Simulated assay, not measured.
Amino acid sequence: MDIFATDSTGKKYNIEIQRANKEAGAKRARYNSSLIDANILSVGYDADELTETYVIFITENDVFGKNKLIYHIDRYIKETEELFHDGSHIIYVNATYNDDSALGKLMHDFKCSNPDDMNYQILAKTARYYKEDKEGISAMCKAVEDLVEDLITDEKKRMALRLLEKQIASIEEIAECADLPIEVVENLVLEKNSSK
Results as ranks from 00 to 15, higher is better:
118 M>H: 07
70 I>G: 05
103 L>M: 12
81 E>D: 05
93 V>P: 03
110 F>V: 05
82 E>T: 05
92 Y>V: 07
117 D>Q: 10
99 D>M: 03
109 D>P: 04
78 K>R: 15
114 N>E: 02
72 H>C: 14
89 H>N: 15
80 T>H: 08
89 H>I: 10
70 I>Y: 09
69 L>G: 14
76 Y>W: 09
120 Y>L: 12
112 C>D: 06
105 K>W: 03
81 E>W: 05
121 Q>G: 14
66 K>T: 15
110 F>N: 01
124 A>Y: 12
89 H>V: 12
109 D>L: 05
97 Y>Q: 04
111 K>N: 15
116 D>L: 04
85 H>K: 05
80 T>M: 04
67 N>C: 15
98 N>R: 07
99 D>H: 02
100 D>Q: 06
109 D>G: 01
83 L>T: 11
107 M>T: 00
118 M>Q: 09
98 N>L: 03
102 A>R: 00
96 T>Y: 03
98 N>Q: 10
115 P>E: 13
67 N>F: 14
73 I>V: 14
83 L>S: 10
112 C>E: 13
96 T>M: 06
95 A>N: 02
90 I>G: 02
75 R>H: 15
94 N>D: 08
93 V>K: 04
108 H>Y: 05
87 G>F: 10
82 E>L: 07
113 S>T: 12
89 H>A: 10
111 K>M: 11
88 S>N: 08
110 F>L: 08
102 A>P: 00
70 I>F: 05
124 A>I: 14
122 I>K: 04
83 L>M: 10
72 H>A: 15
103 L>I: 14
113 S>K: 11
82 E>G: 04
99 D>T: 05
105 K>E: 02
124 A>H: 11
120 Y>H: 13
120 Y>D: 09
115 P>L: 13
112 C>N: 10
114 N>F: 02
88 S>A: 10
69 L>H: 11
98 N>F: 03
76 Y>F: 15
66 K>G: 13
102 A>S: 05
71 Y>C: 11
76 Y>L: 09
77 I>P: 07
113 S>C: 11
87 G>M: 09
116 D>E: 08
87 G>W: 08
93 V>E: 05
122 I>M: 01
93 V>W: 01
77 I>A: 12
90 I>P: 00
83 L>Y: 11
100 D>L: 08
92 Y>C: 07
91 I>S: 01
106 L>T: 07
92 Y>S: 03
79 E>T: 14
114 N>I: 01
113 S>H: 13
83 L>H: 06
77 I>F: 11
67 N>G: 14
117 D>R: 01
83 L>W: 10
89 H>P: 10
107 M>S: 00
110 F>W: 00
103 L>H: 06
110 F>Q: 00
114 N>Q: 07
119 N>K: 08
69 L>R: 15
112 C>Y: 06
98 N>G: 03
97 Y>D: 06
116 D>V: 00
69 L>S: 13
96 T>I: 08
99 D>Y: 01
66 K>Y: 12
68 K>S: 13
79 E>S: 12
123 L>G: 12
72 H>Q: 15
72 H>F: 15
94 N>W: 02
122 I>H: 00
73 I>Y: 11
94 N>A: 09
100 D>G: 02
121 Q>D: 15
81 E>I: 01
